[in-house]
């Protein structure tokens, strides 16, 4: 009897571990299509938002390397020079008139429905504990639905329900939730960009559409363009260099 119980326990433990491993693998794979590369990458993002009758249109240039990223505002001209720096989970804001950078939160709103943490590359595999919740079909694609829980308070969202295509290993849909599990934003993803890594073409995110769950009509669209592999020097991700 004892042996049977032990066997059952081991079976469920290993099954759970296997599912967690599967979730982690899916997450890691999906991060690559959203900029989560150890090597350096650069791209531009055009962020358009419609909120409460207001419309905004901003363009950023993003340089990412591993867990670091630096985002510079390009358009409109009044924002030129504004910089967002990501060091692992720490985030900074700087503009030329400031004496020094200021630490901000990835959770804070950037503009429209996009949070500060949405603008750079994603590292969900690093930032979240994931389990496979269920299987689902989205837009004709079979997906695994992952339930992600934040590993720290510094990451952008407390919980995410993440649909990852079983075939392409790309995220197709996301539901961003509060700590209580209540969804407040949803997102969909497209991957029409392509970058070459190690001689092989790799799909890259081309579009992310984020919508407010309650205020229908409030949405933001991030259009990614000009992605390429660039080996960025470490120095550009050093916060002390921002104000020099």
């Amino acid at each position: 009897m004892k042996n049977a119980a032990l066997v059952l326990l081991l079976f469920f433990a290993s099954a759970t571990a296997a599912r967690a491993d599967e979730a982690y693998d899916l997450l890691k794979a999906s991060d690559r299509a959203r900029g989560g590369f150890e090597d350096g990458l650069t791209w531009e993002v055009r962020l358009r938002s419609w909120e409460g009758g207001r419309e905004s249109d901003r363009t950023f240039s993003v340089k990412a390397r591993g867990v670091d990223a630096i985002v510079e505002a390009l358009q409109p001209a009044k924002f030129k020079g504004e910089t967002y720096l990501f060091n692992d989970r720490t985030m900074w804001f700087f503009k030329p008139s400031l004496r020094k950078p200021i630490a901000i939160s990835a959770r804070q709103k950037l503009t429209g429905q996009a949070a500060n943490g949405d603008i750079a590359s994603t590292n969900y595999a690093r930032d979240y504990d994931a389990v496979v919740e269920k299987a689902d079909v989205v837009g004709g694609q079979k997906t695994k639905v992952l339930l992600l829980k934040a590993k720290s308070e510094q990451v952008t969202y407390d919980k995410i329900r993440y649909w990852v295509s079983e075939k392409t290993k790309q995220a197709v849909k996301a539901e961003f939730m509060s700590l209580q599990g209540k969804p407040f934003k949803t997102a969909t993803f497209e991957y029409k960009n392509s970058i070459v890594i190690g001689g092989k073409p790799q799909p890259f995110i081309s579009r992310m559409t984020i919508e407010d769950v309650k205020a229908k009509g409030d949405r933001s669209v991030m259009e990614y363009s000009k992605p390429k592999v660039v080996k960025h020097p470490i120095a550009i991700f050093n916060v002390n260099n921002l104000s020099r």
Binding site: S97, L98, R99, I102, T111
Partner: peptide, 18 residues
């Protein structure tokens, strides 16, 4: 004595001042 204050502009964009 030097500090930085960050906040939102009237239009909701992130801004900061010395």
């Amino acid at each position: 004595l030097d500090v930085v204050i960050a906040g939102r502009t009237i239009e909701g964009d992130l801004n900061a001042v010395n």
